[in-house]
Computed example of a mutant assay.
Amino acid sequence: MKIAIFTDTFLPDVNGVAKTLGRLTTYLDSSNHHYIVISPKQTRNESATDQIYPQSSFPFPLYKECRISLPKKTEIKNLLLSFEPDIIHVATPFSIGLCGLQLAKKLNIPLVGSYHTDFDHYLHYYHLSLLSRPLWRYMEWFHQSMSRIFVPSAHTFSQLQKRDFHNIQIWKRGVDTTVFHPHYNHSEIRKKYNIKQKYILSYVGRLAPEKNIETLAYLFKNLPEQLNRQIHWSIIGDGPSKQYLEEHKTANVTITGFLSQKEVAPFLASSDLFVFPSESETFGNVVLEALACGTPVAGANAGGVKTIIQEGFTGMLCRQGKKDDYINAIASILENSIWRQQLEENAVRYAQKQRWEDQFEDLLTGYQEVINEERKTTKHA
């Protein structure tokens, strides 16, 4: 199979879309499929390769971690004519994604898309809710001509179905259990970061308003005093809200900044509980990674996260906007060591069944079905 991927974010970007597409291309390499990726140029991936074709880009003024690209449509069209893809996969709805959409129509190439980000939810955190209606109008238009829209969770499936999107298919995420597993030396993390407290609570992810970072700041100062004295918070990540957390952190909080996956995994495995208050996830890869490390999760009963955490079995779900639910969840799990051990064992067993290989094979099967359907339509036209 020959696949052309159009995306407005790709490695080395640090976000769920870029990481997922990076894993996908690695899998395509190992399974002898051919692909090209049209993505933004960055300082860390300046040069094109036989598979990656970076386009000129500049930071988005309101959100500098995102980039606006200026795709060279004529060059990309010639690239497609030379590569002759069986299918085009558009992963994002911005300038490069729009270029992929237009060229798929113009060159009559089967077209699929994937829906990764709850942009509507993001608008709420940036006080731009007035843009919700035009945003959905654009998203509906953008996806209407796609033969398949891949979504990461049943929650997102239902969300788009209510908006009258068609041809939706769930494409779940997986976890690399060779990296994320419980068998790390927990004392090394404690020694490296001078952690003396009995319990380690961790958060991994972007430090940004849409991740509900405000809840973490609240928890730093509002856990019961006796319990709080026994807790060390490890906040792993970077982003526009890092300064806000620095200003609100207490003596028992470490903010590490960005760490690689191989550095994150031992942290997760050494944690007694993973706290993830984000209500805007379409899936929540890091939640699955925490479970694979044997760490139960207190997470938001919202978005894709609620489809990963099994209440009372691998963690606890907290109601949207209810910060005290997290206090109750943290206290309940930490103060019951027998139950916590059972949660840890359940988490590992669940995560080990979520293999990336299976998820990518489901995606490739979806590709093939679309290609076959298009061929039948063309044959009978």
Rank of each mutant, 00 (worst) to 15 (best):
K322F: 05
F220H: 14
S69I: 00
K323E: 12
S114D: 11
I200Q: 09
K242M: 07
A104V: 00
I109E: 00
P12E: 09
S153P: 02
Y27S: 01
H121K: 14
L131H: 01
P209E: 13
L207S: 08
A91F: 12
F258D: 10
S31T: 14
R133G: 01
D164N: 10
N328E: 05
G304E: 03
W171H: 13
Q243I: 11
T26L: 08
I87N: 07
K376F: 08
V112A: 13
G321T: 04
A91Q: 12
F165R: 12
L131R: 10
P12Y: 07
T314K: 08
L62V: 03
Y244Q: 02
T43D: 14
K211Y: 15
Y53A: 02
T314W: 06
Q310F: 01
S129A: 12
Y326Q: 02
F83E: 07
L227S: 02
N212A: 14
S129V: 09
L131C: 10
H248W: 01
L24C: 14
E75D: 03
F94H: 00
L259D: 04
L259H: 07
Q341I: 13
L334Y: 02
T295K: 08
S234K: 04
T25R: 06
A208G: 10
K262L: 14
Y138R: 03
D238E: 11
T178M: 09
G97F: 08
L317F: 05
V175I: 09
L107T: 00
K162V: 01
T177Y: 07
G312A: 13
I96L: 03
T254E: 10
A265K: 12
L227V: 02
I36Q: 08
P266V: 07
A154L: 14
S47E: 15
K353E: 07
Y184T: 08
L103T: 01
A290Q: 08
E75L: 04
Y138L: 10
P93C: 03
F6N: 01
T25I: 13
L28P: 12
E369K: 12
I38K: 01
L273D: 04
A4V: 01
T365N: 11
S95H: 05
I333V: 15
V286K: 00
K221A: 15
E357R: 05
H121C: 05
E357L: 04
V348L: 08
D324L: 13
K379R: 13
Y53R: 09
T117R: 12
W171C: 08
F6K: 05
K379N: 15
D164Q: 15
V151N: 06
S234D: 04
I189H: 12
D29H: 08
L103Q: 06
V37R: 12
Q161K: 15
R148K: 15
I88C: 12
V275D: 08
K191T: 10
K2W: 04
A217F: 14
T215F: 03
